[in-house]
Amino acid sequence: AEKTGIVNVSSSLNVREGASTSSKVIGSLSGNTKVTIVGEEGAFYKIEYKGSHSYVAKEYIKDIKDE
């Protein structure tokens, strides 16, 4: 089941290729951006990003809701 969340950062949140802080950064999301969460892996959520799937750190996503 998909969930949505809100990016909870003051500046921007790195979007990564994989579920690791050493993964390549492929983009960023600004605070209060709504994201669609399709899964989770460790400390990361797998999200829909620009037509494919990428990862963001869970600690920076708030207001998780089931869609």
Rank of each mutant, 00 (worst) to 15 (best):
N32H: 10
Y49L: 03
S22D: 14
V56N: 00
S52K: 13
N8F: 10
N14Q: 14
E2I: 15
K24D: 06
V38W: 06
G51A: 05
Y60V: 04
G39C: 06
I37T: 00
K62Q: 10
A43L: 11
S54Q: 07
G27M: 03
S10K: 12
Y45K: 01
N14S: 14
F44G: 00
N32S: 09
S28Q: 14
S54F: 15
K24M: 08
E59P: 04
K24T: 07
V9T: 13
V35F: 04
N32R: 09
V25N: 03
S28P: 02
Y55V: 00
I6S: 05
E40M: 07
K34S: 07
S12T: 13
S22M: 11
G42F: 04
D63E: 14
K62L: 11
S20F: 08
G51H: 05
F44I: 00
I64W: 09
K46M: 13
S20C: 08
H53N: 06
I37H: 00
S11I: 12
Y45I: 03
I64R: 05
S52G: 15
K62H: 09
T21H: 15
T21I: 13
D66H: 12
N32F: 11
A43E: 14
I64K: 06
K3S: 06
K24N: 08
I26R: 04
K58D: 00
Y49H: 04
A19G: 05
V15R: 02
T33P: 02
S22G: 09
E17C: 09
S12Y: 13
K34L: 12
G27R: 02
T4I: 12
K58L: 02
N32L: 09
S11T: 14
S54N: 06
K34D: 03
S28N: 09
Y60Q: 06
K62C: 11
K34P: 07
Y45T: 01
E40P: 01
V7T: 07
K62S: 14
T21D: 13
K24L: 08
G51Y: 04
A1W: 15
T33F: 06
A43Q: 11
S28I: 12
I47K: 00
K65M: 11
I64M: 08
F44N: 02
I26E: 02
T36K: 13
E48K: 14
S23L: 03
V15I: 07
S12R: 14
H53K: 06
S11C: 15
V35C: 03
L13S: 04
F44Y: 09
I37W: 01
K50C: 12
N32T: 06
T36N: 09
K24R: 13
T4V: 11
K65S: 13
G18W: 11
T36D: 04
K65Q: 11
S22A: 11
V25M: 05
S10L: 12
I6L: 08
K58C: 03
E2V: 15
E48L: 15
E59A: 12
T33C: 09
T33Y: 06
A57R: 11
Y60E: 06
V7S: 04
T36Y: 14
S12I: 12
V35R: 00
G39F: 03
L29T: 02
S22W: 07
E67C: 14
V56D: 00
K34A: 07
L13H: 02
S52V: 10
A57K: 10
G18H: 14
E67F: 11
K65N: 11
E48A: 10
N8P: 04
I37D: 00
A1M: 14
S52M: 13
S23H: 07
T21S: 12
K58P: 00
L29D: 00
S52W: 08
S10Q: 12
V38N: 03
G39L: 03
V56W: 01
N14R: 12
E2H: 15
S30D: 11
I26V: 12
K34I: 14
D63H: 10
A57N: 08
I6T: 08
E48R: 12
V7Y: 03
E17M: 09
A57G: 08
N14D: 15
K34T: 09
K50L: 11
A57C: 14
S10A: 13
H53Q: 08
Y49R: 00
V9A: 10
A1D: 09
G42K: 05
K46Y: 06
R16N: 07
E2C: 15
I37S: 00
G5H: 04
I6Y: 12
S30F: 11
S23W: 03
R16F: 15
A43S: 10
I64T: 07
I6G: 04
Y45S: 00
G39M: 03
N32D: 08
S28M: 12
L29E: 01
V15L: 06
K24I: 07
G5C: 07
I61G: 01
E59T: 08
E48M: 14
G27P: 01
D66L: 13
E17P: 02
T4P: 05
E40G: 03
E17Q: 09
T33R: 06
Y49K: 00
V15C: 06
E59K: 13
S30Q: 14
R16Y: 15
K24E: 06
V25Q: 04
A57M: 12
S23P: 01
E48Q: 11
L13D: 02
K50R: 10
S52T: 13
E48P: 04
N14Y: 11
L29M: 05
Y60G: 11
E67R: 10
S12F: 14
V15S: 01
K34E: 07
H53T: 09
K46Q: 07
V9I: 11
V9D: 06
N8C: 15
S52P: 02
V25Y: 04
V9Q: 07
V56Y: 01
K24G: 05
G31C: 14
E48S: 09
V56M: 02
D63P: 12
S20N: 09
V15M: 06
A1I: 14
V9M: 08
S20K: 06
